[in-house]
Design a protein around this nucleic acid. Sequence first.
DNA 1: AGCTTAACGCTACACTCGTCGCACTAGCGC
DNA 2: GCGCTAGTGCGACGAGTGTAGCGTTAAGCT
Lengths: 231, 231
Amino acid sequence: MTDPEGTPAPADVSAASARDASGATGPAAAKPDRRPGGRTARIRAQVLAAVRGELAENGHEGLTMEGVATRAGVHRATVYRRWRDVGGLLVDVIDAAGEIDWQPPDTGSLRGDLTALNEEIQESLTVQPSFAVALMAASFHSERAARAQTRLWEDRYAQCEILVDRAAGRGELPPGQTDARRLLLAATAPVYHHLVLLRAAPDPRLPEQAATAAVLASAGGAFTASAEGSP
Amino acid sequence: MTDPEGTPAPADVSAASARDASGATGPAAAKPDRRPGGRTARIRAQVLAAVRGELAENGHEGLTMEGVATRAGVHRATVYRRWRDVGGLLVDVIDAAGEIDWQPPDTGSLRGDLTALNEEIQESLTVQPSFAVALMAASFHSERAARAQTRLWEDRYAQCEILVDRAAGRGELPPGQTDARRLLLAATAPVYHHLVLLRAAPDPRLPEQAATAAVLASAGGAFTASAEGSP
DNA sequence: AGCTTAACGCTACACTCGTCGCACTAGCGC
DNA sequence: GCGCTAGTGCGACGAGTGTAGCGTTAAGCT
């Protein structure tokens, strides 16, 4: 009961149909899709729609396996077999959302880019229902949800490194290799911190102010590898 | 089932004995402590010790009401009556930890203070068992735990504002009223973000680097009220 | 010491959660 | 069309969760 996903093998049921682009693991290629035909696909669509509906009505608190199954018109056992737990449902919903084609903002200035990025983050944490908040809540119970959350943010940050490259090309950053990851972390973390940990009301000026602070810090050489903190 | 603490009145059972210093609310004063005598206090001590023990052994996942009751040698119903849910237990444990006598660091420089503060935060999120992580997990399920978490961090940040005041007195900050809260947020948020959301391994240099970045940003006037973002 | 009653122990109950075995439906290949 | 079987529906079960009623214990007060 302490480790809900201790068994490694039978957990790829939903991953088989959802995650095909990044199927770099071995067993995924050996068993790509046994029977992806009409009924299976239809049930998956019904269940994912039910997850979205439940999330919209009851929030991430009211997202229960039985509620999803009832709303989808599917038996509980089917949902348990294919998605295992709430984290698996959320992972599949997010993967199915197809946000791989997300692009970081490009406003012409580093400060503008970071501000736009922060506004996106603030909205993703504020909008109802918030998949980001639901995934965070689930990540404390489901290891798969935790990995999905880490992967999601990791991909986003990797994509956002181009913002720093572009800024360096425009000469907005001081000479020396700036650590893009630390700059992005400093710029975006306050928004997340303010909304999730402090649970304060969203401040419409915070995205810009956090971005400005990060730009100023980088102008001071806080994120350059030639600074003092690196051996 | 969707709202475990919809009833407002009977939720102050544990608050009666735990929260006496900040009893600014009305009903707390009307019924301060009906019978705080030997048995009640002893059972509370046993239960809170059991919570700490369960947390240390099984983590915040394995923290269940029945496990706590069994370990404390107390009946389940008693734990349910006095603490209502897991969030109530955590709230009481944290209140009982007596962290009112916590003092922000004083190293002689703003950067040193913020670095020391960040190292404390990093340790509190890294140490096993981490009450901070457990409280975060519980805050997604229990409204009382969420409020306790907000209150805890709010108090900490309020106490830390003295760091900014001292730095201003030493002339480390630019002229103009600096927003202490935003400075602290910018300094501390990256550590939390890095460990919780990105779930990355603790970086021993991150506390110092985040503190340095915040100091540089404040030197650039990012947190002064006379800057552009304030009407 | 004796009385009052808040608080605890105990039993029983209803309910949810997650799993298992079996029957059956419907893709898929022939 | 016709088998084969992956996938689903169904019912039942065990374990865990939370509540209610009632008897018992012991704290607080005179």
